[in-house]
Amino acid sequence: MPKYIMWSTYCDNVVEKRAPYRQAHLDGLAQQKAAGVLITIGPTKDLTQCFGIYEADAEAIVRQLIESDPYWQNGIWTEYDVKEWIQAI
């Protein structure tokens, strides 16, 4: 099954702005992980970007998951990019 990487950027003052949406965001990620679609995800230490690895039948599935996330819908993630990834090792 294809793997995809996702890079997103966070809004300014992310720690304060994400608070109302954080639990719903984490719950959704946990469901994706349990379903085997999400491999891993997390922010950069400086909280400016987020990196994720997904495994899905199509890029459109990954984009749908990202765009239905509370962080995307509420402007916590300000932009994102998805690329199909070839895992070498």
Results as ranks from 00 to 15, higher is better:
Q31Y: 10
N13S: 11
N13C: 03
Y4M: 03
C11V: 13
I39M: 02
T9Y: 05
I76M: 06
L29S: 13
S68E: 12
Q49V: 05
D81H: 11
P43R: 03
A19E: 14
G52K: 05
L38Q: 07
A34I: 06
D69E: 10
M6D: 01
K45P: 11
W85A: 03
V15Q: 10
N74T: 02
G28P: 13
T40W: 09
C11I: 10
I89K: 01
L26N: 14
K45L: 13
E55W: 06
E79V: 01
P70D: 01
C11A: 09
I53K: 01
D69A: 08
Y54M: 05
A34C: 06
C11N: 07
V14R: 11
L26G: 11
A88L: 04
A88W: 00
E16D: 15
Y21K: 00
D57R: 14
Y80T: 03
F51N: 02
I39T: 02
K33R: 13
A19N: 10
I41C: 07
I53T: 01
P20Q: 00
A60L: 09
L47D: 09
D57F: 09
P70L: 00
Q32A: 15
K83D: 07
F51G: 00
R22Q: 14
Q32G: 12
S8D: 05
T40I: 09
P70H: 00
A60F: 09
T48Y: 07
E79R: 05
R22H: 15
K33N: 13
W72Y: 10
G42A: 07
Q87L: 02
N74G: 00
R18H: 12
T78V: 08
K83I: 00
A24V: 07
P20A: 02
I86E: 03
Y4C: 07
I86R: 06
A56M: 03
Q64Y: 11
Q32R: 14
Y71L: 03
A24C: 03
Q49M: 11
D69I: 11
I61V: 15
Y80Q: 00
T44Y: 12
I76G: 03
V82Y: 08
G36D: 13
K3T: 08
D12A: 10
Y80D: 04
W72A: 05
Y80S: 04
C50T: 08
W72H: 10
V62E: 05
L29V: 15
